[in-house]
């Protein structure tokens, strides 16, 4: 169908609205001036970023949390999707979808209230472990959503054929359905990693003194005012995620 000129122009404006703010932010991270006036190319803010040990520690924490939560939630969520595909469970899928639409702040405070309540009886404190548990809990629903979408296109007759030919249930799952799910699982893992690495609201609620994450440091810096180091971190995160998506895209096509 022919595109109208008006629509084309409008779309161009919307794409500009979506991308120009981020591109400008990235561009000015290479500015030698602290202010928003271009004075020349410099890597000063990147030098400061790499010299900041608190930042490095937070980035490391974020990476550990995101990897742990991705592995756990991808396994648990995939098993859940398969189980629900075999036979639905209204309360479980209902609760998981509800967790998906629950405002983050509500999830965060309810988990905080829960941990505080439990820890009154056990001498445990908030820390990396509570953050990882919280992240796994909210990531399972995302994994379920993605893997379930893939399972909907699956053919149940294939597994039945495998069972008829003498495979047991576990073998039917492992040898027939699981290989078919691989692209879906990879996409789910990528999503789980992103939502974990990105989360601020829930994390800030359940984190302890030893578990400050990158978004928490970034948030504190952003609140303190203009800081080109934040632009530099933003650029690195932007490029990092971009690379991650491209790699996973290539892997899925290969």
């Amino acid at each position: 169908m022919k595109q109208s000129r008006f629509l084309g122009l409008f779309a161009a404006l919307v794409y500009a609205f979506l991308h120009v703010p981020l591109l400008l932010l990235c561009a000015f991270s290479f500015n030698s001036s602290k202010f928003t006036v271009w004075e020349g190319f410099s890597l000063e803010w990147y030098r400061q970023m790499f010299a900041d040990t608190q930042l490095a520690e937070a980035a490391w924490n974020s990476l550990v949390i995101a990897l742990a939560s991705t592995v756990l939630s991808t396994i648990i969520g995939t098993l859940c999707a398969y189980g629900l595909w075999k036979r639905g469970s209204k309360w479980l899928s209902g609760s998981l979808y509800l967790s998906l639409v629950t405002p983050e702040i509500v999830t965060g405070i309810s988990m905080l209230a829960f941990f505080q309540w439990v820890f009154r009886y056990w001498q445990v404190q908030l820390g990396m472990h509570t953050v990882i548990l919280a992240h796994v809990a909210f990531s399972i629903a995302y994994v379920l959503l993605v893997v379930m979408a893939r399972l909907r296109t699956a053919e149940p007759a294939l597994e039945e054929a495998a069972l008829d030919l003498g495979a047991n249930e576990w073998q039917a799952f492992k040898l027939v359905t699981l290989p078919m799910l691989k692209p879906g699982i990879a996409a789910a893992a990528l999503l789980a990693f992103t939502v974990s690495f990105d989360d601020y609201v829930i994390t800030a609620m359940v984190a302890g003194v030893d578990s400050e994450t990158l978004p928490m440091v970034l948030y504190a810096m952003a609140r303190r005012g203009a800081n080109p180091v934040v632009s530099a971190i933003s650029t690195v995160i932007f490029l990092g995620f971009g690379a991650l998506i491209l790699i996973s895209d290539r892997m899925q096509k290969a």
Binding site: L18, L25, L218, A222, A226, S234, F238, I245
Partner: peptide
């Protein structure tokens, strides 16, 4: 694409 960067980064871009 912009959706795949950190939400904090996208919000900070508007502060900037």
């Amino acid at each position: 694409l912009p959706f795949w960067t950190s939400f904090l980064v996208r919000t900070y871009a508007w502060m900037f």
